[in-house]
Simulated scan of single mutants.
Amino acid sequence: METTTVLEGYSDQEKGAYLGAMASIATADRQASNEELEYITALCDAADISETQKEAVIKAANELSGEELKKCLDILKNSDLKYSLVTDLIAFAKADNNYGIEEQQRVKETSDYLGVDQNQFSLLNEFTEKAATNDVPVEEKAKPSFLSSLGLSEKMKSAGINANSLMKGLLGVAGPLILGGILSGALRRRGRRGSSMFGNLGGMFGNSGLLRGAGLGSLIGMLSGGRGFRNTGGLLGRILH
């Protein structure tokens, strides 16, 4: 049986930092639920990270002060995965079709903290806009060729963003269908039943507007059950000031 491995080509520390940041942002101002911890653990398994990194990711999902998130962001400053994280944050913030000034400011502050410059940020924002309105199968949105079809591949290359690295990191860009397959597969490999947990994944996204509204799935949105960006903004505000 073919297995899906995510975040291939990145170091154990980079993968742990990316998933830790995702987990921390998705569970802002509260501890992760049991279901969320199952999602997060399955993602760790799909990324094939070490037990040490997995423990750090779980800690990030349950830690409320933002210190764990800050550690993850500091690691991602030196990784191409920072572009993937910023893109997923934008998709998460826009998912409810209410991307307000405060949300925009928090996403931009996070982008600045990671060392993403204005030109790069604008291109990542343009990508989420075009990806959301482009009517192609979700599987196609996970391929580097999708950037070319949007006319963004060369622009990103000129801006210092590696298209192949960006798409490998963007777990959320392909939407919940691919993510559901990755996660349920990881759960099966762990000897658990993935079908009951992920059977209604598509419905969860539809009900929360993550696909209906923005047309671009967000990994953070999936982990948070579509709770929205407001609590996340508070967490980011604490660590960025």
Rank of each mutant, 00 (worst) to 15 (best):
E126L: 08
E140V: 09
N164I: 09
Q118P: 00
N134Y: 14
D112F: 00
E129K: 05
R106M: 14
S122P: 00
K141T: 03
G172A: 08
G169K: 01
S149W: 02
N125R: 12
L166Y: 05
A132S: 04
I161W: 06
L152G: 04
F127M: 13
L171D: 06
E102K: 14
Q118D: 10
F146G: 06
E109L: 07
R106A: 14
V107F: 00
P137S: 03
N98Y: 11
R106Y: 09
M167E: 11
N119W: 00
L123V: 07
S122R: 13
S165A: 15
E126M: 02
L147M: 15
E126V: 03
A163S: 04
G160T: 02
L166H: 06
E129H: 00
V136Y: 04
N119S: 10
L124Y: 05
V116H: 09
G100F: 07
E126N: 04
L114F: 11
G172D: 02
V136G: 05
L152K: 06
L170A: 09
I101A: 14
G172M: 02
K108M: 06
A159Q: 04
L124V: 05
Q118R: 12
R106N: 13
E102W: 08
E139P: 00
S111G: 03
P137D: 05
N98G: 07
E102N: 01
S122K: 14
A132C: 02
V107R: 01
E103K: 15
S165K: 15
I101R: 15
A132Y: 01
A163K: 02
K143Q: 15
V138Y: 12
N162K: 09
K155S: 13
L152R: 01
T128Y: 04
K155W: 01
L114M: 11
S145K: 14
M167F: 08
Q104D: 05
T128Q: 09
L124I: 06
N162C: 13
T110S: 04
L147A: 15
L171F: 11
A132M: 03
K155N: 10
V116E: 07
E129A: 03
F127G: 05
K155G: 02
Y99C: 05
P144Q: 11
E103T: 12
A163M: 02
E129T: 01
S153T: 09
A131C: 13
A132G: 06
G160P: 12
N162G: 12
K157W: 00
